[in-house]
Computed example of a mutant assay.
Amino acid sequence: MDNHKILIEELIKLLNGGGAHAGFDEAITGLPKEARGIKPDKLPYSIWQLVEHIRIAQWDMLEFSKSEKHRSPAWPDEYWVKETAPADEAEWEKSVKQIKDDRNVFINLLKHGDIYKAIPHGDGQSILREALQIADHNAYHIAEIIVIRRLLGAWPS
């Protein structure tokens, strides 16, 4: 197998999670519905706010990677929702589905594009750089989800 294919496989593993840390899917599996909107004492976010932030930021990086017409949300206000909990189960499911769907679309970019070439409308970014940024950003906030779950007694020991 050539080095490029090895790199793509490793990036996909990184985006999907696992290995050295839990991935998004694992971090939300078994999460009690009532825990989604709890903001533990002295912490700035609920799990819902973190999930939405992951969704918005990952979507932004994906759309930037695909289109010069994309305009990023205003930082920081449009990257963080004010509501601490989803309005209902449908809103939660829609957010989780978009995170997974957008991740899969980005993985498709990795598989079928030139990951090293600078994105024409950027200032030096490439698909490779965006993949690493998505993985890094998501891992950071996934860890926060797990910490909140631990504080709430909602994480398997």
Rank of each mutant, 00 (worst) to 15 (best):
M1C: 09
N3V: 12
K5Y: 12
L7T: 15
L7K: 13
E9H: 14
E9C: 02
E9K: 07
E10S: 14
K13P: 04
L14K: 11
L15G: 04
N16R: 15
G17R: 01
G17K: 05
G18C: 07
G19W: 03
H21A: 15
H21W: 10
H21K: 14
D25T: 13
D25I: 11
A27E: 03
T29I: 02
L31V: 15
P32M: 08
K33N: 11
K33F: 05
K33M: 04
A35M: 13
A35N: 15
R36Y: 12
G37P: 01
P40I: 07
P40S: 08
D41R: 11
K42A: 12
L43N: 11
Y45T: 02
Y45D: 02
Y45V: 00
I47V: 12
I47G: 00
I47T: 00
L50N: 06
E52Y: 02
E52P: 02
E52M: 08
E52I: 01
H53R: 11
I54K: 01
I56T: 04
I56W: 08
W59F: 14
D60T: 15
E63W: 06
F64D: 11
S65H: 03
K66R: 15
K66N: 10
K66E: 14
S67P: 08
K69L: 13
R71E: 15
R71H: 11
A74G: 05
W75D: 11
W75F: 14
P76H: 00
P76T: 12
E78R: 06
E78K: 11
K82N: 09
A85Q: 00
P86G: 01
D88C: 01
D88H: 05
A90M: 06
W92N: 01
E93I: 10
E93T: 13
S95D: 04
S95R: 08
K97D: 14
Q98N: 12
I99L: 09
K100Q: 13
D101N: 10
D101A: 09
R103Y: 03
V105C: 00
I107A: 11
N108G: 04
L110Q: 03
K111W: 03
G113P: 00
G113C: 10
I115F: 03
Y116I: 05
K117Q: 14
I119D: 05
I119W: 07
G124D: 08
Q125Y: 04
S126E: 09
L128F: 14
E130K: 08
L132W: 05
L132P: 00
Q133C: 09
Q133S: 14
A135H: 09
A135K: 06
A135Y: 07
D136Q: 10
D136F: 12
D136E: 13
N138E: 15
Y140M: 10
Y140R: 12
A143T: 02
E144K: 10
I145D: 01
I145L: 07
R150F: 08
L151Q: 08
L151I: 05
L152E: 06
L152N: 09
L152S: 04
L152Q: 12
G153T: 02
G153Q: 09
W155L: 14
P156R: 13
S157Y: 08
